[in-house]
Amino acid sequence: MREPTGAPPPGANPYIPVPFRVSGRRRETADTVTLRLRSPSGDGLPFEPGQFMMLYVFGVGEVPVSASGAPRRAGILEHTVRAVGPVTRRLVALRRGDWVGVRGPFGRGWPLALAEGFDVLIVAGGLGLAPLRSALLQILAQRDRYRQVTVLYGARSPADLLYRLDLSRWQQRPDLELRVTVDRADERWRGQIGVVPALIAQVERHFEPARTVALVCGPEVMMRFTVRELQKRGVPDDLIYLSLERNMKCALGLCGHCQFGPAFICKDGPVMPFSRLAPFSEIREL
């Protein structure tokens, strides 16, 4: 079992973005797209699932965005972006052939090496599926290294479900247990309605708590309730990993913008075990 390490940003100057070209764009929902970015030189920025890049829209600004694609694809990055403000709106509006600046990768990713030989329980809420998709793609590419793999995914409504093609492919796989739920739906939806922490009770027989690594990403309230459900069943705090979001500036552990307790989320996170977060969790934010 070994902890993942935060890879240092490559390149001579981590402050200078590398130009990437938009080579593909898939609309996921009304406000979210997945961008495929290609490095003209063919050199990628190799990342670990769970790490993030700083995406820079020229003349507008720079924001942290998780890698959502398969790692280890030379020169290709995928990022799923939801338009919530000035920079993300511009990212979502990018077209094929447009340029975007990329710095990274930053931070520590999901503990996929640690999870080898364990059951893996992935719990994603909303856009939280983006960094977990990257983890799942890697797990599925090396499926025999893991025991039972279960994915629980909650979205706001059927129209807000990301990665529909992936979801239907994953649904078919006999070596993956996938449950999807939405908070609200009309009568045409034939699936589950309810919140994602409630799905944990349904899949109890698919994981052995003491030998389970849980990977959780979503809104903080959803993560809080998910942690409680996992703890109730005996998943140890040091095997529950959460991905946290904080506003960021330098992404290099220098400016203090992303501080959480004694940790800097950009460097020590965004993925952290709950055992490290628990002492600070009564600060009303995870």
């Binding site: 406000d31 979205a155 706001r156 908070d183 919140v195 979503g218 309730f225």
Partner: peptide, 19 residues
């Protein structure tokens, strides 16, 4: 209690736009 808890979380509309 479980169903009430779920209904309360659903009311929060956790995945809605941040604003």
């Amino acid at each position: 209690a479980e169903r009430l808890k779920a209904a309360r979380l659903q009311l929060l509309d956790l995945y809605g736009p941040p604003r």
